[in-house]
Amino acid sequence: MTGPTFTMLAPAKVNLSLRITGRRADGYHLLDSLVAFTDFGDRLSVSPSNDITFSITGPFAGIVPADASNLVVKAAEALADRFDIPAGLGASLTLSKELPAAGGIGGGSADAASALRLLCDLWDIDPDHPALPGVALSLGADIPVCLRGRACRMSGIGETLSPIPPLPSLGIVLVNPGAPCPTPAVFKARVGSFSPAASSIPDAWDRETVLAFLADEPNDLTDAAVTVCPEIKTILTAFSTLPSCRLARMSGSGATCFGLFDTADSAQAAATALARDPAVPDAWWIKAGQLVS
């Protein structure tokens, strides 16, 4: 089947802050998080096909499933089912996997969200259809925010998204140690009481007010994640040695950590310095770019 190919960036999702505010009876944890996205990530392409097919390329292709258990395939099947896409009108999906998997930066969720958006184009579905967020949430708690694709405040289990003022330009470096940090193990290791929700977000902010706000905002899972993956503490210490780093935190449930910088150029210089540091393990994945609002 011939036709147009649609391609989209599936950016890394970064939890700039993360408070765990409670737990539902069904076991899902409630959170309050400021979420932003980077200008780099995986890339997904779709083109017409008689069936839903899926393939993976890229440096991390070997560590994610290439079968029907992948969230990209699940997203395609869920969307086709919800909108009664007829048999014979499928899609060929190709994922270039550039982000480490299960790293707390929403790689699989961003891939699934991009699949939903691209397939809306391919199958002529209104991308603003009110049923689409429900399809996203049925696939995973992080997918609605990735479907939105803009910086926002995320609460509930991830389904409640509130707008925030546009973020100022900020450079970012992501570092992943190449070590496992399973989310269930992190939540199991978490101790202590739940946090209150964050204070009110300003109506407008510049770089300094954003950084001041985030300086008072924790990631409540950091201590637990460090017990599961001690390399996280090493990464955060490495960020603290970079004089241009304005703020460093872990994202999500780990193990990826981020450092914020005044500009994309200073972030790239910091990433280069880390990569050249003989004390930095070869297994570390280091990527620089900037936040997008």
Rank of each mutant, 00 (worst) to 15 (best):
D81Y: 08
D142P: 12
S169E: 15
L16N: 00
D128A: 15
P48S: 15
I201D: 03
G289S: 10
L31W: 02
A136S: 10
P202E: 14
D128C: 09
W284H: 09
D124W: 09
S200G: 14
S199I: 11
R24D: 03
P168A: 10
K74F: 12
I232G: 00
I20Y: 09
P133A: 04
T183W: 07
S47Y: 07
V73I: 08
I56R: 10
A75P: 14
A267D: 05
C245L: 05
G178T: 13
A269W: 02
A264W: 09
K188C: 06
D39F: 06
A283V: 12
A12M: 06
V175W: 00
L214D: 03
A10Y: 14
G289K: 07
S33V: 01
G171P: 09
G90N: 10
S45A: 15
G62Y: 15
A131P: 07
F83A: 06
D111H: 05
W123P: 13
R246S: 13
A248W: 02
L137W: 05
P182I: 07
R19G: 03
A255P: 11
A264D: 14
P196I: 04
A198R: 03
L9F: 07
T57G: 10
N15G: 04
L291D: 14
S49Q: 13
K13Q: 04
S199L: 08
A267E: 10
R276L: 06
T38F: 03
A225F: 00
P127F: 01
F258A: 01
F83G: 07
R24P: 00
L139V: 11
V173E: 08
V135E: 07
N219Q: 04
P230R: 02
L291K: 03
A36F: 00
G62P: 08
E98W: 06
F261K: 02
A87W: 05
S92P: 01
G156H: 04
V280A: 12
L89C: 14
T209K: 05
A269S: 12
A279F: 07
L31S: 02
W285K: 01
P59V: 11
S200T: 15
I85K: 00
M250K: 00
T227Q: 01
F261H: 02
V145Q: 13
D282C: 11
E159D: 11
T160I: 10
S193P: 12
V210R: 01
L122S: 11
F40M: 06
L122W: 13
F40S: 05
T272N: 12
A212I: 02
T222S: 01
I143S: 08
A224Q: 02
G259D: 12
A238S: 05
P144Y: 06
S109F: 04
T2D: 08
P230C: 06
I125G: 09
I85P: 00
T241P: 00
F187E: 12
F213V: 04
D220L: 08
L137M: 15
G252T: 00
T7S: 14
V46Y: 03
F37A: 02
P182H: 08
N176P: 08
T5A: 12
L44F: 05
D203V: 11
V14K: 01
I125Y: 13
I286M: 02
A225W: 00
L260P: 04
D216F: 05
G134R: 14
L99N: 04
G156E: 08
P166R: 15
S47T: 13
R190I: 09
D265T: 08
A75M: 15
E231P: 01
A87C: 01
E77K: 09
